[in-house]
């Protein structure tokens, strides 16, 4: 550990706000990408289910 205390670590000699902001935003953006990938997958699965349901409905009629 380079810093003497947790307080020093958070303050980073006055550069704390800059450094922590950057790491925070990065975590949010990368997490957001994973979230968006999940959302796209779910909406694609929904679209597949709709196709299958329509197909089943049309074969049921025959």
């Amino acid at each position: 550990m380079y810093f003497d205390s947790l307080g020093d670590f958070l303050a980073m000699d006055g550069h704390g706000p800059y450094v922590w902001f950057c790491y925070g935003v990065t975590a949010v953006v990368l997490g957001g990408l994973l979230w968006e990938a999940r959302r796209r997958r779910q909406s694609a699965e929904q679209a597949v289910r709709t196709v299958v349901r329509r197909k089943q409905a049309s074969t049921g009629k025959e």
Partner: peptide
Amino acid sequence: LFTRAEILDRERNTRWVQ
């Protein structure tokens, strides 16, 4: 992850995706 979601979306009419 993004490509796989796109594959499911575009290939929704194929048997393997269904």
